[in-house]
């Protein structure tokens, strides 16, 4: 069991669906959504939210700065 739990908030409309965050996620939390945003991009989202450890790798690699990350100690 991970010591930390995290949550990723993707600004859906700013995301360009490049998928770099999906590739950077060590826990395979993120995926590109079936749906598209207003610009027609398959935006990134937390497919497996429970697996997030809040490592912020996704935010660090995001070229469009559309990711905010929260982290809390696992209860």
């Amino acid at each position: 069991m991970a010591k930390f739990v995290g949550a990723v908030v993707v600004d859906k409309e700013t995301c360009k669906g490049c998928g770099v965050c999906v590739d950077a996620c060590p826990e395979s939390v993120l995926a590109l959504h079936r749906d598209v945003n207003g610009k027609g991009y398959h935006y990134s989202y937390m497919k497996d939210a429970g697996a997030c450890i809040g490592c912020i790798n996704c935010g660090v690699v995001c070229p469009d700065t559309c990711i905010t990350v929260y982290r809390a100690k696992a209860s």
Partner: peptide, 30 residues
């Protein structure tokens, strides 16, 4: 989890809200 006290990564205020014109995944944004 999504509470201000748990915030660990966000956009710096020096970057404004204009969406960058770069292609998806471009290194320039980083």
């Amino acid at each position: 989890i999504i509470k201000p006290e748990n915030l660990v990564y966000q956009k710096t205020p020096l970057l404004n809200d204009d969406v960058m014109h770069y292609c998806p995944g471009c290194s320039h944004g980083v």
